[in-house]
Simulated assay, not measured.
Amino acid sequence: MKLELQNITKYYGKYPALKNVSAILTEGVYGLLGPNGAGKTTLINILIGILSANGGTICLDGKNTAKMGRRYFDKIGYMPQYPQFYANFTVREFLTYMCQLKGVDKANESIGSALKFVNLEEHYSRKIGSLSGGMRQRLGIAQAILNNPKLLVLDEPTAGLDPGERIRFRNLISRLANERIILLATHIVSDVEYIAKEILLLQKGTLVMQGTPSELEKSIKGKVWEIFANEKDMALMVDTYCVSNIKQQGTSYLLRVVNNDKPFENAKPVAPNLDDLFLYTFFQSSEGQV
């Protein structure tokens, strides 16, 4: 399966929320990474049909999705950033309702399979209002996969989750990736660092980079440094440079600095990671003299 975005453009009034975004996605997990306001949710809403683009086309296996109509939407599963649930519905009542909305055949079978997948089988009779935050997020995944979608779109799916639930959620996503395209929009690097086939970096409505995590990390090779400093120098460096991490070691501090040039004579180059890339790409102009 192949999803092609061709010059997707969207304006809100005169403000360009998306500017000629083009990408090709095949089966696997894709991370859509960018700070708040980058255009991630706008792009998602165009993909799933909530918004219309002002320009560009989306093609699925060579067919214009605008002309496919229901045949395209039947292939989509979507989990919004903040799923809205009916607190007094039981888990099963809610999923039955969603099956009716989606026109899912064999609803009981689909519900049973989805609950088993997200490990909520034992909670099917509980009121949604009594579920924990992590369980509600897993219920959000369950409703998104009821129709066995070929395109699964997740908008900030780990918002508000503790580290344990976040890891569990990532594992669920990885297991879903076979024979479908998953687009996971987030501003949290760790959500996609280990599971994404490729990452798309969106900045101010423009797709600035796309590639595998290792390819993207290599793009800033030679621009990440480590340096030991005392407390006074550490404070000065934080004010002057893009610092991605500070670790206290005894009376000194080990700083990880993202900068085009060697910041100090005793700075040592280190291998970049995606946090460094995120900082370099999105915050270099506002935090320090990259």
Rank of each mutant, 00 (worst) to 15 (best):
S219G: 08
R166Q: 06
M234H: 10
Y82W: 03
V91T: 10
G62V: 08
Q284Y: 11
N259A: 15
V21M: 01
G49K: 03
K127Q: 15
N259D: 09
M68C: 07
Q284E: 14
I50G: 12
A142L: 04
R166T: 05
N245A: 14
S113T: 15
L131R: 08
Y253G: 06
K127F: 14
K40G: 09
I76Y: 01
R71P: 03
F169W: 10
A267G: 12
N45G: 00
E156A: 03
Y241I: 03
K204I: 05
E109H: 12
I227T: 10
A229I: 11
V208D: 15
L18V: 02
L279C: 07
K10P: 12
M209F: 14
K247Q: 15
L207A: 06
V243C: 07
F117M: 14
S113F: 15
R92W: 06
Y15Q: 11
W225P: 08
L51K: 09
R168D: 12
D61M: 07
V91Y: 00
V192C: 11
C242E: 06
L33K: 05
Y15E: 07
E93G: 00
L183N: 07
Q84I: 13
I195Q: 00
L176A: 02
G133Q: 08
N88L: 15
G34H: 03
L172T: 05
M98D: 00
M68G: 07
Y97R: 11
K10N: 11
A87L: 13
Q210D: 11
F278H: 03
N260C: 13
K19H: 12
I227Y: 14
G112W: 02
T158L: 05
H187A: 03
R170T: 04
A17S: 09
A23V: 05
G205Y: 01
V192H: 07
G129E: 04
G160L: 03
E179R: 14
I111R: 01
N178V: 12
Q284H: 14
K221L: 07
G160Y: 05
C59A: 13
L139K: 06
Y78G: 04
N119W: 10
V270D: 11
Q210A: 15
K67D: 12
G37C: 06
Y97W: 10
P80R: 14
Q6F: 05
R70G: 02
L32M: 12
A23Q: 01
I195A: 04
R175A: 11
T41F: 01
N64V: 04
S252H: 11
N273C: 10
N54E: 02
T9H: 00
L255S: 02
P272V: 05
G55R: 06
A271R: 15
K102I: 05
M98S: 11
K204R: 08
S125R: 06
T90G: 13
D162H: 12
I48K: 02
V270F: 05
A177C: 08
R170H: 04
D155Y: 08
S132M: 15
L51S: 08
Q289C: 13
A235D: 09
I50V: 13
Q143G: 07
Q210M: 15
T240L: 04
T57I: 13
K14C: 06
E93K: 01
D276I: 06
P213K: 02
